[in-house]
Simulated assay, not measured.
Amino acid sequence: MQLAKIHHIAIICSDYERSKKFYTEVLGLPVIHETFRAERNSYKLDLAVGNQAQIELFSFPDTPERISRPEARGLRHLAFQVENIDATVQELEAHQVSCEPIRVDDITGKRFTFFTDPDGLPLELYEA
C-alpha cells in the first residue's frame, strides 16, 4: 500500500451557516463546491486547503454532541501550516477568535497555537 496524501478532513457542524462563515470568511478557505442533499436535509461544503487537501463541512439535523476532550482517544486536532503565526493570530483575533498563547514545539523548534471553530473543535496553527 502507498498512501499519497491526505485528501480531506470531514467535519459535522451544529450550525451550518455559522460554520460556513467561520471557515470561508474567518479562515479564508475557498469554496470548491456546495451541495444540499434534500433527502438528508443536509449540506456538504467542500473547501480547499492550499493545493493539497480539502475540508468537507457537513450539516445533519439533530447531531449528538461529541463527548470527548482533545486528550481522549480519536482525532485530536486539525493543524494548518502558516508562514507567519503572529499575523495569522492577529487576523483571527480581529474576528473575535481567541487563540492560546503561542508556544514552541520542543521537538521541532517551530511555533504553534490552538484555537477552536464555532463548535469548539480544536484547530492548530503551525508556523512553517
Rank of each mutant, 00 (worst) to 15 (best):
N51R: 04
A53N: 06
Q54C: 05
Q54V: 06
Q54S: 01
I55W: 00
I55G: 02
I55C: 06
E56F: 09
L57I: 13
L57P: 02
F58H: 08
F58K: 00
F58W: 13
S59Q: 09
S59P: 02
S59V: 01
P61Q: 06
P61V: 02
P61H: 05
D62K: 15
D62T: 05
P64M: 07
E65N: 04
R66D: 15
R66F: 15
R66L: 10
I67Q: 13
I67H: 13
R69Y: 02
R69L: 14
R69G: 11
P70L: 05
P70D: 03
E71Y: 04
A72Y: 12
A72P: 02
A72V: 01
G74F: 10
G74E: 11
G74K: 02
G74C: 05
G74T: 12
L75W: 03
L75V: 14
R76F: 03
H77M: 03
H77G: 05
H77T: 00
H77I: 00
H77K: 02
L78R: 01
L78C: 09
L78N: 00
A79E: 11
A79P: 04
F80L: 01
Q81K: 09
Q81E: 07
V82Q: 10
V82T: 15
V82K: 12
E83I: 15
N84S: 06
N84I: 10
I85S: 05
I85D: 02
D86H: 07
A87T: 13
A87H: 13
A87S: 13
A87M: 11
T88D: 04
T88N: 03
V89Y: 01
V89M: 07
E91L: 08
L92V: 13
L92M: 06
E93R: 15
E93S: 09
E93V: 11
A94Q: 12
A94E: 06
A94L: 07
A94H: 11
H95Y: 15
V97N: 08
V97L: 10
V97Q: 11
S98N: 10
S98I: 06
C99Q: 12
C99L: 12
C99H: 03
C99I: 14
E100D: 15
E100P: 01
E100N: 14
P101D: 10
R103L: 13
V104K: 14
D105A: 14
D105F: 11
D106R: 06
D106F: 00
I107A: 05
I107M: 08
I107G: 02
T108R: 09
T108E: 12
T108H: 13
T108L: 09
T108G: 09
G109P: 06
R111Q: 03
R111T: 08
F112D: 01
F112N: 05
F112V: 00
T113Q: 04
T113S: 04
T113I: 13
F114L: 12
F115H: 02
F115M: 01
T116V: 11
T116S: 14
D117F: 09
D117Q: 08
D117C: 05
D117M: 07
D119G: 09
D119C: 02
D119V: 00
D119A: 12
D119Y: 07
G120R: 05
G120A: 10
G120P: 04
L121A: 08
L121E: 09
P122G: 03
P122K: 08
